[in-house]
């Protein structure tokens, strides 16, 4: 089978993975928008969210049975909710422990990076200790496979659910940033923190809520990711780097840029993984990242959070 035959299948797969990258990328972009800082530990927020969702799904599902119909939907909802909550809790703790004390001291930028790396190292290995260092099986929530064909590509229930949930989250976030008071605060801080303070924006509150929103998205995204690719203590690293790449690709600090970047990266990777050797698939994202940073470090959409959305 040639590339042309596989094209639509690769597109469907790429869109699904890409939508997840977009969901995670938003966390990077939002935090970068308000703090001009790469949140290195975001990938661990994603991982902890996945385990949170998994905990709910396993706990509610009677051992060994396969769910169907409404039970599937209920489990999905529970997994997403608990996953999002775990992600938010992880992000909140991260901000409080690894970032806030440094901000109070107005520590140099390098200190934040290092502290985030410490947090990441801590979280990954604690998860490895608690959940074991192998893949943790995720119960199949949807039994029936292909729901429909799209130009000859098989689209499974799983794919529809993941893509659909991701798109809903992306739209909600976009509206949140564009229309709500909180979104206004986030944009104000992103544009000019000093002025935002003078205008009566509670910057501390905006920062913590930005972390929490990023955590909600990453947590739910983690559960969706785990449904497809299983969960493990180090599951955060690779999607984390890719989502970061997506954020840079779209223009870090730009909400719609992160969405676009995620989808694009998913597609590029899906096609690239077919064309090149599969074991080097993960390298593609890095090459994209380096390429973008060389050629156009401001990303495709460029604009910052303050001006975007």
């Amino acid at each position: 089978m040639g590339f042309a035959d596989q094209f639509w299948q690769l597109t469907v797969d790429g869109l699904m993975v890409g939508s997840l990258y977009a969901v995670i990328a938003l966390g990077y972009t939002l935090v970068y928008g308000v703090l001009q800082l790469i949140n290195f530990a975001h990938s661990e927020v994603f991982m902890l969210g996945a385990f949170g969702g998994l905990f709910a799904a396993r706990g509610l599902l009677p051992g060994g049975s396969t769910p169907s119909g409404m039970i599937s939907v209920g489990l999905l909802a529970a997994g997403l909710a608990v996953g999002a909550a775990s992600g938010a809790a992880a992000a909140f703790t991260l901000e409080r422990v690894a970032y806030r004390p440094l901000r109070r001291r107005s520590a140099p930028r390098l200190a934040y990076l290092i502290s985030a790396i410490g947090a990441s190292l801590f979280a990954v290995n604690l998860a490895g200790k608690e959940f074991g260092r192998q893949n943790v099986p995720v119960p199949a929530l949807f039994t029936n496979g292909t729901v429909f064909h799209l130009f000859g590509a098989q689209v499974s229930t799983q794919t529809v659910v993941v893509f659909g949930a991701a798109v809903v989250m992306l739209v909600l976030l976009d509206r949140l940033v564009a229309t709500t008071r909180l979104g206004q605060g986030i944009r104000a801080v992103a544009q000019d923190a000093d002025t935002a303070v003078l205008m009566g924006v509670n910057v501390e509150r905006v920062i913590i809520l930005t972390f929490v929103i990023g955590g909600l998205l990453a947590g739910a995204g983690g559960f969706l990711y785990a449904m497809t690719f299983n969960a493990s203590y180090n599951m955060g690293f690779v999607p984390g780097v890719k989502a970061f790449t997506a954020a840079v690709l779209g223009g870090i600090g730009n909400v719609r840029g992160a969405m676009l970047g995620g989808i694009l990266l998913g597609l590029v990777e899906s096609y690239g993984g077919y064309v090149f050797q599969a074991s080097y698939k993960d390298v593609i994202a890095f090459l994209v990242l380096v390429g973008i940073l060389m050629v156009r470090p401001s990303g495709l959409l460029g604009a910052r959070l303050g001006r975007a959305a």
Binding site: L102, S115, S120, N125, K129
Partner: peptide, 17 residues
């Protein structure tokens, strides 16, 4: 040995704080 990194991570954060 693998669990050591939990402590190394904690040490990094604690030092930064």
């Amino acid at each position: 040995p693998t669990d050591r990194y939990i402590y190394f991570g904690a040490v990094i954060i604690a030092m930064m704080i």
